[in-house]
Amino acid sequence: MNGFVQGNPLLCIGCRTCMIACVVAHEGKRIFEIDPDGYDFHPKLKVVKTWAVSAPVQCKHCENPACLSVCRSQAIYKNDGAVLVAHDKCIGCKSCAEACPFGAIEMVTLCSEQNSDGSPRTVANKCDLCQGLEGGPACLSVCPTEAIRRQDEETLSDTLKRKRVGAAEALLTLGAGDHQSHILKSQSV
C-alpha cells in the first residue's frame, strides 16, 4: 500500500510552517543565498481553513490514481510507494489537476524554465513524499504541534482497529437503530 501524509485538524494551528518547509526541502537551502525572486515558491501542500477545520491538504498517493490515468504525456508515474510527476514530461494540460478528487495537484509556473516559444513553463505540482530527499517528508518533521503524520499500512490498520472497537462499544450503549448516527458523530469529532 502507498503511504501518505495526513494532517490532523484537532492539532493543526494553521501556522503554515509545513508549506515553507516543503519549498525549502525541494528548492534546497541555496534559496537563502540567492536573488529573493530567483526561486520557485510552490508548496506541494496547502493549509485549508474553514469554520470547522484547519489542516494541510496534500496528495493521498492513491493506489489507482485518477491523475495518472488521465495523464496523456506519461508525466505521472508510480515509484516506490509514491505517485510522482516528471516535470520534464509534463505538457501542462491540467487534466490531472481536474481529475484529482482532493484538489491536491496545482498548476505552477516555474521561474527558471521556458517553453519552446519562450513563455514560462507551467507544470503540475504535487506532494512527492520528499522522495529522494534526506530525512523524509519535511512537513512532518517541522510541524510544531505534531499535527502531520505519515499514514502507512500499519498506522492505517491501527486507526481502523481503534475505530472498530469504538463502533462495537457503541453497540452496547445504544438502542438498536440509533447506533449508526452515533458512529458518524464520533467519527466527525
Binding site: T17, I20, A21, F32, P144, T145
Partner: peptide
C-alpha cells in the same frame, strides 16, 4: 525542540 515558521526561517 519545536519551532514555528518565524523561528525556523526568520533568520534570513
Amino acid at each position: 525542540g519545536k519551532l514555528c515558521l518565524k523561528g525556523r526561517y526568520g533568520w534570513d
